[in-house]
Amino acid sequence: MIKTYEIEVSDGAQAQDREESFIGGLPIMPEDVAIPNCLLCGAQQTFFFQISFPDEHFWEGKTMVFFSCTSCAKKGYFIPKMLEGQLRDAVIPKLFLDDYQINFRTIIYDTSSGSMRYDYQEKIKYRKILFKKIDDPNLKKNKVGGSPNWFLEDESPSTLDDGTPMFFLMQFLEEYRFEIIPSAPGQAVLGFDKEVEYSDNNYYELFLGNNIYFFGTHYGQPQVYVFTQI
């Protein structure tokens, strides 16, 4: 069993430093990796968070950076594309993982190779992430490692189609809100007439605020499978 770490988010605004796990602010990632653009609208995607995986984790020494578009709202793209057929113990085609990140992006790199990216315009307020090691892998919290807390039935995948095992990386539980800075534009949403509107909330939601589960490859080239339950 992978060690379990509760994700604790700091209170209050802080000046961003070289912390490697945090929400919002400016991302830390390799200089030769481009800030991703949305494949639906072409806008630069919004940086939501990054996790530098803690000690005793399969991905110790690696960091995952997560972006998602907040500039457009199109039916069919509010949550990640789902696999077809049975989801529990599913074998995931690698081509699916290559193609399904349309309006969001995960970037995984060796933590030591990251640099602060000043070519990104901050939108989400910086919050430092602390990891609290916990004994109960089933604790219902935002967490890294342990066991997923399913909202519905177990949808854990099995392997990639090349046989590479998948394991549970982390989760954000429903209705987590990412507070934005005052100058950030509102998040794009669909209005009642199906026209795009922009929220006046002081936060962004990721995938409609649903429970979000992240699974990763056990070895080889890091791959991430992201999906939600409502």
Rank of each mutant, 00 (worst) to 15 (best):
E60N: 06
T63H: 06
I108H: 05
L87A: 12
D110K: 15
M82W: 13
D119L: 00
V91Y: 06
S112F: 12
F48R: 01
G114R: 06
E84D: 14
K62M: 15
N103F: 00
Q121D: 13
Y120C: 04
E122L: 03
Y109K: 03
Y120I: 05
F104W: 04
F78Y: 08
K94E: 14
L83Y: 07
T46N: 10
Q44R: 13
I107C: 02
T106M: 07
F96T: 04
D98V: 02
Q121I: 13
L95F: 10
Y77C: 05
F53C: 05
G61N: 09
D119N: 06
Y109Q: 14
L87T: 05
F48Q: 01
L97H: 08
S68N: 14
I92E: 10
G114F: 00
S112M: 12
S52W: 02
I107T: 05
I108R: 06
R117M: 07
D99F: 14
I79D: 15
Q45A: 02
E84Q: 13
E84V: 14
E122V: 10
S71A: 10
G76R: 08
Q101N: 09
K75N: 12
G85L: 11
V65A: 14
D89S: 15
G76V: 03
G85A: 08
Q121V: 11
L87E: 11
F66V: 15
I107L: 01
K62W: 15
R117H: 10
G85V: 00
Q44L: 12
F66I: 13
